[in-house]
Design a protein around this nucleic acid. Structure first.
Lengths: 212, 212, 212, 212
DNA sequence: CAATAATCGAGACGGTACGTCACGTCTTCTT
DNA sequence: AAGAAGACGTGACGTACCGTCTCGATTATTG
C-alpha cells in the first residue's frame, strides 16, 4: 500500500525525530488498525461474499472513503488484513528428523485451516481466482515465507542423508501440502492429524526411495 | 431444483404416449439450453463473482424469471451448467501399468485445467468457498464419478501387485491430485506434463514402498 | 416522460380494450403519485437544496431506482411534481372592469407566493437558473397557460376601450407581474394586497394614457 | 465574516508603525484575491450549484481551510466575491430629464445581465432562494446602493415637476426594474434596449399621470 | 373447440451495496 | 497565527443487480 515511507524510516540515527514526511495530515494509524481488525472479524464471521466494505467501515467507525483511499478493492483489503495478522506461529521445528519436522509443521497448518482463521485463507484463495493481485499477495506474503523455511528444513534432511542429494524440493513440498489444500478447499474428506501423519509418511517414503 | 418432475418423465418405457404431465405450456428445452450455454460462456469470460443472472438472462434472450423459476441461486445454475457439459473425455485407460494409467489420466486433467475450461472449474471452486451447495455439487458431479473410476484403476494395480493390499486409496489419490489442484489454484508453479510425470513417479514410489 | 401511450389512448372506440402497450410490467401509477406527492411535501418543508432524492424515495416508500427510472434529475422531478399539482385556482375573473380583473388575479397570485406553495415556485425559479429544462418547464406549464388567459382579459379591455388598440400585451403583463416576481425573489419589500393594488393602478394608468 | 478586525486596521493614521495587530502571521491578501477571483471565474463558468469550495481552493492554489477560515459558507463567499467586483459603472446620469436618466441606467443594467457577469447575478439570486444570508447580501451590497442613487434621481424629477410630489418611490422603482428581473430570470422574452425603452416610457407615463 | 393452466418474453418494482464526490473539520509541517 | 497540504467522518449521489411481481402472448392438456 502507499505511504510506507514514514513506517520504514526506522534507520533511527536520531532517536525520535527526522522521519521525513510530506505536508498534510498524516494517515491515521488507528483507523488503519480498526479497518484491518474489522475486516478479519467480519470475514471470519460471514465469508468473502457477505463481507461488504460498508460493514467494514461501519464496524471500524470509519468513513467508507477512508477504506477506499487506501485499498482499491475488497481483495486488497483482505490480503492486507491477512498479512498484518499472519500467525507468527507456523514455524518449522528442528528436531533432527525430517519427518518429525515436516509433520509437526503440517499439523500446525491444519489446525489453522480448521479454525476460524481458515475461513480467511479460503476467502483469499477464492477471491484470488478472479483477482491476480490477491492470489499474488497470498503467495508473496504467506506461501513463500514459509516455503523458504521449508527449503532449509529439507536441506538439513539432505545433509543427514534422509533425502537424495538432488531432490526436487518444489515437487516434494507440493506433494506434501497439495493434498492438504485440496481437502481444505474441496472438503471431500477431513483434515485430521492422522491424515497428515500418513500423508507425510507416504510422500517422504517416495522421496527417499527415489534413488532406485 | 423443482425441475425433477418433467425431467424424470423422459425415461419413456411406453413408446410415445403416457409421459404424465399436467396441463399448461411445457418447459422450453431451448430456453434451458440457452441459459446453461450462456452461463458457461460468461463464466469462462469473467469468473464467478462477475457473473450476474441478469447477464445470463440477457445473453440467453430469456426472461430473468425463467432463470429463477428453475434454479434457486447462482450456485445451482453454475453447477448445472458445469455438469451438463462435463467433459466426456477424462476417462481412465487400462494399459496394464498403474503408473501409465494414472499418469495418462492426470495429463488429461491438466490439459483441461490449462484450457479455457479451467476457468470454469476455478470459478466453481472459488464460488464453493462461500457456498456449501456449490462445492457439494462439484464433488458429486465431478469429483466422485472420476474417483470411482480411479478406485477401479487402483484395484487393478493391487491385483497386479503394484500396490500393497491394504492401500488407503483416498490418501493415495489425494496425494496424486492434491498437488495438481494446489498449483492450479495458487499458481505458484506451472502445471506441466513433466511435473505430472514426476509427481506420479514420486507418489507411487512411496505407495508401493510402504509395506516396509 | 415515457409511456404516455396508454394514458392517452382514450379515443375509446372500443370501450375498454385496445389501449396499446408494450410487454413488461406496466408502470405503477401508485408509485408515481407517491413520488410526486413526497416531492412537493419535502420541497415545501425544506427548500430546493435540502431536497434529496434519497429522502423522496424513502418518504414515498419507493426504491431510489424507481425515481431515477422516470426522472433524470431533481429538476425534472420538481417540475413534474409542480405541474401535476398546479393550482386549478388562479383563473381570471370577468367582472367587466380590466383593473378589477387583473387586480383580483394578481391578489390570488401573491396569496400563493406568500403561502407554503411559494417555496416550491421559488425552488423552481432558483433551480432553473442552472437548468434550462427546469425553467422551460416552468414557462410551459405555469407561465404560458396563465398568460394566454391574461391575453384574453386584456383583449376584453381593449374591446371596452380601457386600453389602446395596439397595446404591447407582453410589455404590459411583464410590467404588472415583474414587480411581484422581483419582490418575491429579492424580498426587499413585502408582497401585500395594497402593493398589488397600487401597482395595478400605476401600470394601467400608464397603459391607458399611452396614446398621448 | 470575522475578517473585519484586520481589514479595519488599514486606515493607518500613523505613518508606518502602530497599526494594531496581534502576533502571528498576517492574513495573506494574495490568497484573498485569488479566492475571490477563482470564485467569480468558476461561478461564471458553471453556475451556483456546480461551484464547490474544493474547486475554488484548488483553482486558487489555496488550502481549503483558508477558505473556511474567512467565509462561513458558499453564500458568503459568493456575496463577497460579487461585491468585491461590482461594476463601478452602473451609476445614474444627470441629464436633466428623468426618463433619460432612468432609461440610460436601465440600459447599462441589461448590458450586464446579458453579459457573462449576468450568470453571477443569476447564481446569487438562485442561491439566495435557499439562503437568507445570500439574498440579504445581494440586497445590501447591490440593490440598496443603487436604489439610493435612484431615490436621488427621482427626487430631482419631482423637483422638476416630472413626478407628483408624493410619489411612492419604491413602487415606482419596482415597476421599472421588476420586469427586467422577471425577464432575466424566467427568460420568456428578450432583454432588449427597445424593451427597456418602452418599459420606461410606460411606467413613467403611469407615474406622472397618477395625480388624477 | 372452448376453457384452463403453466410457460414464455419483457420489464417495473422495493431494496442493498457499490464506488465517487464534496462537505466541513482536523492535524501535521512550514512560513 | 496563518498558510498549504491532505486525511478524516459523514452522507448523498447515480448505477448495477438482486429476487419478486405483473403484464400480454403462447402452447399445451382437459372437458
Amino acid at each position: 500500500m502507499r505511504r510506507s515511507a514514514s513506517a520504514k524510516a526506522k534507520d533511527g540515527k536520531y532517536p525520535k525525530s527526522r522521519q521525513r514526511r510530506g505536508p498534510g495530515r498524516p494517515r491515521s494509524e488507528q483507523a488503519r488498525q480498526a479497518i484491518l481488525g474489522s475486516t478479519l472479524k467480519l470475514l471470519g464471521a460471514n465469508g468473502f461474499s457477505d463481507l461488504t466494505i460498508e460493514d467494514v467501515a461501519a464496524h471500524a467507525k470509519v468513513g467508507k472513503a477512508t477504506v477506499y483511499r487506501w485499498w482499491p478493492n475488497k481483495a486488497a483489503l483482505i490480503a492486507d488484513a491477512f498479512a498484518s495478522n499472519t500467525t507468527p506461529q507456523l514455524h518449522f521445528p528442528d528436531t533432527g528428523s525430517l519427518r518429525t519436522d515436516m509433520s509437526q509443521q503440517m499439523q500446525q497448518l491444519i489446525r489453522i485451516f480448521n479454525s476460524r482463521r481458515g475461513r480467511i485463507v479460503s476467502a483469499i484463495l477464492a477471491g484470488g481466482q478472479s483477482d491476480q493481485e490477491l492470489i499474488a499477495a497470498f503467495r508473496q506474503r504467506f506461501l513463500w515465507p514459509r516455503r523458504h523455511e521449508a527449503y532449509a528444513t529439507l536441506r538439513r534432511g539432505i545433509g543427514r542423508g534422509e533425502l537424495p542429494k538432488h531432490t526436487d524440493m518444489d515437487l516434494l513440498l507440493d506433494s506434501l501440502y497439495g493434498p492438504i489444500y485440496m481437502r481444505f478447499l474441496i472438503r471431500h474428506a477431513g483434515l485430521t492429524p492422522a491424515f497428515v501423519d500418513r500423508l507425510c509418511r507416504l510422500v517422504l517414503a517416495g522421496a527417499s526411495a527415489r534413488r532406485k
